[in-house]
Design a protein around this nucleic acid. Structure first.
Length: 122
DNA sequence: ACGTTGACCTATA
DNA sequence: GTATAGGCCAACG
């Protein structure tokens, strides 16, 4: 099975499953998909997220330190923080306050292994 | 087509 | 604690 392409789709899927008012990390999603070392690919997926549809809430994805590293890739550098604050997440100096409290781990809330929710392959 | 870059993370020195 | 290295793989120049 072509995991390479599914990886991106899975990333988008997981990110979309992130509850509102919560945040996740690249490593968490990557690890959830089975390869925490592919965290960079998650970032790449986010980079292309603007080309994907439906849109991916990339603003809920921050780095392992809760830092809004990707804010500069949004339409506006402050857009990411704005969205997070709009969801009730305190952001200061591009850092998520109480990040661990808002941290949403897919491996803890979603299935141990991402079963294609739609089973579209079959 | 090859080389570099990239919204990262972990480990070692 | 900071600095450097390694790893993943797709997109861009």
């Amino acid at each position: 099975m072509p995991q390479n392409k599914d990886f991106f789709q899975k990333v988008y899927a997981v990110v979309r499953q992130v509850p509102l008012g919560k945040v996740s990390t690249y490593g968490a999603v990557a690890a959830y998909l089975g390869s925490k070392q592919s965290a960079r690919m998650v970032g790449w997926a986010m980079n292309l997220s603007h080309t994907q549809f439906p849109p991916v809430p990339a603003h809920r994805i921050v780095n392992g330190k809760g830092l809004l590293t990707g804010k500069r890739h949004f339409a506006s550098p402050d857009l990411m923080q704005q969205l997070l604050e709009a969801e009730g997440i305190g952001v200061k100096h591009d850092c998520v306050e109480n990040f661990e409290a808002f941290f949403w781990d897919p491996a803890k809330h979603l299935s141990p292994v991402y079963n294609n929710t739609g089973s579209m392959e079959d």
